[in-house]
């Protein structure tokens, strides 16, 4: 069974931290199809968080098709989370390194790079909404 932990001050909302920890456990295989997630009551008894936060995280995972809830029984892992295809990963990594080389050569520092990535991500997200 997965045990949740919370990182305070990470800037990531509590429910998103729960979602990410389940996704991570699926990716590395510590959670497998059929495994049960702790009940909201069990989670709040160890983390002192609002039960609605847990339910919201589980709803989000259910919406993504990763878990399903059997009323009265609990929430269970529905499927594995496929890792990104290896070949894609290699080529993306290579292109990112080239881009980083160019950024450093232009005199950017790590914080500038982080800011650029965050901005680009924001712009993409707002284009998706629009």
């Amino acid at each position: 069974m997965i045990e949740f932990r919370l990182h305070r001050g990470s800037g990531v909302s509590t429910y998103m931290q729960l979602v990410q920890q389940v996704r991570h456990a699926l990716r590395v295989g510590t959670l497998r199809p059929g495994d049960q997630l702790p009940t909201a009551k069990e989670v709040v008894a160890t983390l002192a968080i609002n039960p609605n936060t847990v339910l919201k995280a589980y709803r989000e995972l259910e919406h993504a098709g990763l878990v399903h809830t059997r009323p009265g029984l609990g929430t269970f892992v529905a499927r594995e989370l496929p890792a990104p295809p290896l070949r894609e990963l290699h080529s993306l990594g290579r292109r990112l390194r080239q881009w980083l080389d160019a950024a450093y050569a232009a005199g950017l520092e790590d914080e500038d790079v982080d800011a650029l990535i965050a901005t680009a991500r924001q712009e993409l997200a707002s284009e998706d909404i629009a």
Binding site: K41, V44, A45, L47, A48, I49, N50
Partner: peptide
């Protein structure tokens, strides 16, 4: 404090 809030949240979960 932590134990109090945990047990309060357990009640809410019901």
């Amino acid at each position: 404090r932590r134990e109090f809030l945990e047990s309060l949240m357990e009640i809410v979960a019901d």
